[in-house]
Design a protein around this nucleic acid. Structure first.
Length: 577
DNA sequence: GCCGTTTTCGGCCCGACTGTTTTCAGTCG
């Protein structure tokens, strides 16, 4: 997919321009990069079909950017971008990832201390050179070091949401090869972990050579790391590695099982095998030298005396014991989702009109869509005040009326009136009670003052949950993957109050958030707290991100009873305050 | 560099917070 590559180049162009101190252009490039990111059609295909005219139609792309895209598609590089890289030989992406460091600081750091990358920055900070720079001080130096520590922990891992779309295409490509019988992703990606180290793919094929030839010549490859007869490895231009292995049909199940992990799960399984006088490895399940299972995963788990276990559960955290008793949870699926309750329209900072969002939701077979625009505190997102909120509600009423007519008078699809209000420092909500009463549901979330002490932050959220209008807490722990940790808070206490006040906690599907995370979902389920899986989409195409939230819910053992947007609309609305 | 129900030029989401200042620049969302 060329979209991600082009988005990245434009994003980097924006960064270079910002370091240069150019005004307005960076935002233009950033906006275009975001368009590419959410575009459902491949830019290369658009160009093939409609030429440069089609490119110009992409939102935020004008004459100059369209030329640059064509230049990239035809020649593989953009001259102006290459010039930037030469002129400013800094790893801006790496440095900007440090929280508290922005374009201006990067410029100063380069000019005064020749800092080009994270390593240089850490060295300078550790030797106390940063504090003496103008506008810098000891505190800033400390913050930089702290932030670098966080980044280091995340290094070498990639977001599930960045990897999965590419790997899905790889699997489709492999399955298209004649005589390929099976192709499946394994490893942490199959278990849908929120971040992935590298990708492993398993293939069954008559002629492994053909598979290897195809694999090392796929689009999007940066370099071939190894090419063998049945095992190869490539690095994608997005940075991550994909390993492929061709296995025999009779060992496919055991190879799937073995390479899917987790390590802990597999160790536990092998111990069970030993206790039954058997041996389990990637080639099969053996009784002495006789292979008694291996073709499918199901037969391996069966012979080990348990039910087949969904990959998301394989962490050796109780799933094996339940599988032995045949009492595994019935995990939710994407197809169980009946609607999305956290979608931003163009009434706030979203990209699409309510109607456009609704059309996408209907295509996804949803029964309802909850519009949750920001409220007035978030000026940057053009948050709604009481007056504009009412105007928006009127539009929703009109659309609902039209929808009923379209469905012959039946309410087959409905738009729900909501908003994502802000939880202020004292736990209050940034908008009038009267306006809140007119909504179908209210989400409240924290968007400022993230660094409060544990006790204060806990009380702040608790106070919000005790508000009789607050139905849902959005992205409850506030983490941003690979950037910042959860807020300091007493999560167990928050769960108790959520249960008491019947407040629903959100599982935010945005790939950078995935908040609640798997462990917290499991805790919430255990505490009897209900959850909702939302996308937080700011664009109609982002409604598809639902898959990521569902995957984390599955990792957290969630069943249909735990997730309110798996319920029919009426039942869900009755549950909300 | 993009965009247009104030249209081919002149705008461009903007307030809060932090750390460093002694009146504000830089970052964040």
């Amino acid at each position: 997919m060329s979209n991600k590559e082009i988005a990245k180049i434009f994003h980097n162009m924006a960064l270079y321009l910002e370091v240069e101190g150019v005004i307005f252009k960076p935002q233009a490039y950033e906006r275009a990069a975001m368009s590419f990111d959410v575009l459902s059609e491949d830019i290369r295909e658009i160009y093939k079909k409609e030429g440069i005219k089609g490119i110009r139609k992409i939102s935020g792309v004008g004459e100059s950017m369209a030329d640059k895209i064509v230049e990239y598609l035809e020649k593989g590089k953009i001259k102006e971008y290459e010039n930037f890289k030469r002129k400013i030989p800094i790893d801006i992406e790496e440095l900007i990832a440090v929280e508290g460091v922005g374009p201006k600081m990067i410029k100063t750091l380069y000019q005064k201390l020749k800092i080009k990358n994270l390593q240089d920055l850490e060295k300078a900070a550790k030797s106390g050179k940063i504090r003496n720079l103008p506008k810098f001080g000891e505190k800033k130096e400390q913050n930089i070091l702290q932030s670098i520590e966080f980044l280091k922990r995340a290094k070498g891992r990639y977001l599930l949401g960045d990897i999965l779309p590419t790997v899905k295409e790889v699997i489709i490509g492999l399955k298209n090869i004649k005589d390929v019988k099976e192709a499946h992703v394994v490893g942490s990606l199959r278990r849908m972990k929120e971040t992935i180290g590298d990708v492993d793919v398993l293939v069954v094929a008559e002629k492994p050579q053909k598979v290897m030839d195809y694999f090392v010549s796929m689009p999007g490859i940066e370099k071939i790391l190894a090419k063998g007869a049945t095992k190869s490895s490539v690095r994608m231009s997005a940075g991550f590695d994909i390993d492929i292995r061709v296995v025999s049909e009779k060992s496919y199940g055991s190879a799937l099982q073995y390479f899917s992990g987790s390590k802990e799960h597999n160790i536990a399984l092998r111990k069970i095998a030993i206790s039954k006088g058997l041996k389990l490895n990637e080639y099969g399940l053996f009784e002495g030298v006789k292979m008694i299972a291996g073709k499918s995963e199901e037969e391996i788990y069966e012979k080990l005396g348990m039910a087949w276990i969904p990959a998301e559960l394989r962490e050796n955290s109780g799933e094996i014991e339940l599988a032995q008793k045949n009492k595994l949870p019935e995990l939710i699926k994407v197809s169980d989702i009946k609607g999305d309750l956290h979608v931003h329209s163009d009434w706030d900072g979203g990209e699409n009109s309510i109607l456009e969002l609704v059309e996408s939701a209907i295509k996804m077979d949803y029964q309802y869509l909850g519009i949750a625009d920001h409220t007035k505190f978030l000026r940057i997102e053009n948050g709604l005040d009481e007056k504009r909120l009412r105007e928006r509600n009127k539009e929703i009423d009109k659309l609902n009326f039209r929808l009923r007519q379209g469905f012959g008078g039946q309410a087959k699809f409905r738009i729900l009136k909501g908003c994502e209000a802000n939880i202020m420092v004292d736990g209050s909500i940034d908008i009038d009670d009267q306006a809140l009463k007119e909504l179908d549901f209210l989400i409240a979330g924290i968007h400022s003052q993230l660094k409060m002490k544990k006790k204060e932050m806990t009380s702040r959220i608790i106070k919000a949950m005790q508000n009789p209008h607050v139905d849902i807490i959005s992205h409850p722990t506030g983490r941003i993957l690979q950037k910042r940790d959860e807020y300091e808070m007493d999560f167990d206490r928050i769960l108790r109050v959520a249960k008491e006040t019947k407040t629903v906690l959100e599982i935010n599907s945005f790939p950078l958030r995935l908040d609640l995370k798997d462990i917290n979902i499991k805790k919430a389920k255990k505490a009897g707290v209900k959850m909702v899986i939302n996308t937080d989409a700011h664009h109609k195409d982002s409604l598809r991100l639902m898959e990521y939230g569902v995957s984390q819910a599955r990792r957290g053992w969630a069943e249909r009873t735990d997730i309110v947007n798996c319920w029919p609309a009426e039942k869900m609305l009755k549950m909300l305050k």
